[in-house]
């Protein structure tokens, strides 16, 4: 084991490594507690997603009223809610499991652009879909 400790000492001062390799403090459980909590939350939200998909939101007045404000009707309400839950779960995975919470700007910046361009991909597709010259595009078969 002396070999390993030598490695640890050979490292440059680990100031830049916030979740660094400080193996001398705390128990495993203490370290991994946040991950276990997030994992449990992911399980819980999976159950919630499945449960939500059996509720017909378009039959519930308050939802119909609220989603009507943003122009969403019918089963689409279910899709919006389901996707919102999924996005929340993805944020949990990203923030905790992938450590985006404490990641460097060198990681953040390209990711922000990526999300921007993915959003562009979806939104501009939708934009083009929603604004055809009548009679020129047969969107539906």
């Amino acid at each position: 084991m002396s070999d390993h400790t030598a490695t640890a000492h050979d490292k440059p001062a680990a100031t830049h490594d916030s979740h660094g390799h400080d193996e001398h403090h705390g128990s495993v459980l203490e370290h991994v507690k946040p991950y276990l909590i997030v994992g449990a939350a992911l399980f819980l939200f999976t159950v919630i997603t499945v449960a939500l998909s059996y509720i017909h939101f378009d039959k519930i007045g308050i939802f119909v009223w609220a989603f009507d404000k943003i122009g969403v009707h019918g089963f689409t309400i279910n899709i919006v809610i389901g996707m919102a839950v999924a996005t929340f779960k993805v944020c949990l995975v990203g923030a905790w499991f992938m450590h985006l919470k404490q990641e460097k700007s060198s990681v953040w910046t390209p990711l922000l652009f990526t999300f921007f361009f993915v959003a562009g991909l979806f939104l501009l597709f939708a934009f083009a879909y929603a604004d055809p010259i009548p009679g020129t595009i047969e969107w539906k078969h």
Partner: peptide, 24 residues
């Protein structure tokens, strides 16, 4: 580099894109 991602549909004016999308 940034703008090049949001200009692509100028290759597609002939596909029946409406005036709003074209203008963008």
């Amino acid at each position: 580099g940034f703008l090049s991602f949001i200009v692509w549909a100028h290759h597609m004016y002939m596909t029946g894109m409406g005036p709003k999308v074209s203008a963008f």
